[in-house]
């Protein structure tokens, strides 16, 4: 009798602990499930689905990198494809002309895109939102026209560059869509984590402040132009590295892949996502994935896409998952009135 109650008691306790574990680690459980879901996806699908997955992965990477610029720092950038294109072309040129391995070119592609972003953004970063929007459109168009006109005899004009070799990672050659799937989504996971950490850092908090109120931020001693430029360059660098992998996946790149229309779509994906990274991920899945799934309605696909953009904004102008205001732990001593703890509490707030 005594035994059974004890066993019962023990069982209940265990259930409670399991429950509490889920309660406390809801987030971790959710993310582990999400990762498992993405990892298991290729096991079920055909190569068409996997290819689609890779494609969505590229868009997700671009959207996450644009989210740093647009979602976190609030800089209107509608020319993100320019930096993606610069990265892709740097890899393509280094690889086809000087036969550099793709992964070696990746940091360089990122740096080139970042440097390009720094040069073009430096004189314009202080401009008001709408002006910046138009200038970035100008940048993406100028890059496309420059590529089309075969600058330096390196970009191959409207045909682009072909014959880019496949990347090799530790002796393993990445060829099949499924390899690229894991590579791209692995990069998504790493970027997600890094940008998450960045958001919580001093830098990320400064960006958040600038987005909310740049005048007040300036008043608090944040060098607004400097931080904005850093965010812009960081996002562009990421796009450049993504472009590098894109070039290796496609083996052929052409200027038309990096046009204004694509930039608009990435821009819309970020705004529709609402600013949080999970929102951006969901939005990329919805707005890049769904139109692909409805391929058989090819003609109506983009019509519905445009309609969906309008309806989504009317229905939910703040986006799918807006960034929640972050909560900071305030020490309980703060409320008990202990004098010396006040400064401690404030430290945590800051």
């Amino acid at each position: 009798m005594h035994d059974t109650t004890a066993a019962h008691h023990f069982h209940a306790e265990k259930n409670k602990t399991v429950g509490r574990f889920f309660e406390h680690n809801k987030r971790s459980v959710f993310y582990v499930a999400l990762i498992l879901l993405f990892a298991a996806f290729p096991l079920t699908g055909s190569s068409y689905w996997i290819d689609l997955g890779v494609n969505i992965g590229f868009y997700t990477l671009l959207a996450l990198s644009l989210n740093v610029i647009l979602g976190q720092a609030g800089i209107f950038n509608m020319g993100h494809m320019a930096f993606y294109g610069v990265g892709a072309y740097v890899t393509a040129i280094l690889n086809t002309v000087w036969h550099w391995p793709v992964f070696w070119t990746m940091p360089l592609a990122g740096c080139a895109a970042g440097l390009f972003a720094a040069i073009v953004a430096r004189p314009i970063i202080h401009l008001r939102g709408d002006y910046l929007l138009i200038v970035t459109i100008g940048i993406v168009e100028i890059v496309r026209i420059a590529l089309l006109n075969d600058i330096g005899g390196l970009t191959g004009g409207s045909n682009g560059i072909f014959g880019i070799s496949r990347p090799v990672l530790f002796g393993f050659k990445i060829v099949k869509p499924i390899h690229f799937y894991y590579l791209v989504w692995g990069m998504v996971a790493v970027s997600y984590l890094l940008f998450y950490m960045m958001r919580r850092s001093r830098f990320g908090r400064a960006l958040n402040y600038i987005k909310t109120d740049d005048v007040a931020a300036e008043g608090c001693g944040i060098d607004v132009a400097h931080y904005k430029l850093l965010a812009f360059v960081l996002g562009a660098t990421w796009a450049g590295m993504t472009g590098s992998i894109y070039a290796a996946k496609m083996t052929t790149i052409a200027p038309e892949s990096f046009n204004f229309m694509e930039s608009c779509i990435i821009f819309a994906v970020v705004i529709l996502g609402g600013g949080s990274q999970l929102g951006v991920l969901i939005s990329a899945l919805l707005f890049i994935g769904l139109p692909e799934i409805f391929r058989q309605f090819n003609d109506f696909r983009m019509l519905l896409f445009g309609l969906a953009m309008m309806l989504m904004m009317i229905w939910r102008p703040q986006g799918i998952l807006p960034m929640r205001p972050r909560l900071y732990a305030v020490s309980k001593k703060l409320f008990s009135g202990a004098k010396e703890s006040t400064s401690k509490g404030q430290e945590k707030i800051a």
Partner: peptide, 14 residues
Amino acid sequence: AVVSALGASIFFQN
């Protein structure tokens, strides 16, 4: 509103 305008543009074009 900008995204809505972009959506409208894509809608009209198609």
